[in-house]
Design a binder for these strands. Structure first.
Length: 242
DNA sequence: CCGGTTGTTCAGCG
DNA sequence: GCGCTGAACAACCG
């Protein structure tokens, strides 16, 4: 389930364990997860689609990939990749990628690239876009170096909102469109978060998985576009190709 | 019930 | 070393 907003939600739900000591560790991960035993969690952070468990001497990065999930104070049949027990509950992570990060997180992460971080920086994003003049719009919206946290749904919805065709190259887009892009992508991510909390995310999809354009009533196109070859929904009539 | 996918990395090749 | 392709991972929905 995981685009950036879903990870922000995970962080919010995990808040109850911040500052708590990990009493029990288990899971089928091949990483050395036992080093978490007895450790007190300093804080949880997110960067794009990364969920970060920050401990005094190291950080554990959890990436839910395509199929990952988590449960708090609940279990299911599958065996967790990682299970952490505290004195006030437990959290299980399933089918995710775990990696320990040593040293200073700020040396690893460019927080200004995270579309949901307070450090998100439009100017930095614009500079990165301009450094990739030949890239397609549908590809840059999945580029985690530029729009960390954006995924395939956000990509489709942002292009539709801005009425920009997925096959626009960055160099062809007018400055105004680029300025809209770096503003609208975080905006949509926060709408996504709000709708997901309300359980009404899919109801608000205007492009993703849609068969008809809500603006002009013509059929939506579905194609696997760009270097990323990800499923792209768009309206040929409404989304402008410069 | 089989096909498809809200994601990423890596091996292999030219 | 590069860019591209396909595989691998592996769960859940319709």
């Amino acid at each position: 389930m995981p685009e950036g907003p879903s990870i922000v939600l995970l962080k919010e739900e995990a808040q109850i364990f911040e500052g708590r000591k990990i009493l029990q560790v288990s899971g089928n991960s091949k990483e050395a997860i036992q080093r978490l035993q007895g450790v007190t969690i300093k804080s949880f952070k997110t960067w794009g689609k990364h969920f970060l468990i920050c401990c005094p001497d190291f950080t554990l990065r959890i990436h839910l990939m395509l199929f990952g999930s988590y449960l708090i104070n609940e279990t299911k049949a599958a065996s967790p990749r990682l299970s952490l027990t505290f004195n006030n509950g437990y959290i299980n992570f399933y089918t995710c990628s775990l990696k320990f990060i040593e040293g200073d997180l700020n040396a690893v992460y460019d927080w200004s690239a995270d579309i949901m971080h307070k450090a998100w920086n439009e100017k930095n994003a614009l500079a990165k876009l301009k450094a990739r003049p030949g890239s397609l719009l549908c590809d840059v919206l999945l580029d985690q170096d530029i729009f960390a946290g954006s995924g395939n749904i956000i990509k489709n919805e942002v292009m539709y909102r801005l009425q920009l065709h997925p096959l626009n190259t960055i160099s062809e887009l007018p400055q105004k469109a680029l300025a809209q892009l770096v503003k609208a992508t975080p905006e949509y991510a926060f709408d996504f978060l709000r709708w997901k909390k309300a359980g009404s995310l899919k109801k608000h999809w205007l492009a993703h998985t849609q068969s008809t354009c809500s603006r002009c009533d013509l059929p939506m196109q579905k194609a696997y576009l760009g270097k990323t070859k990800r499923r792209t929904y768009y309206c040929d009539n409404c989304q402008k190709l410069y």
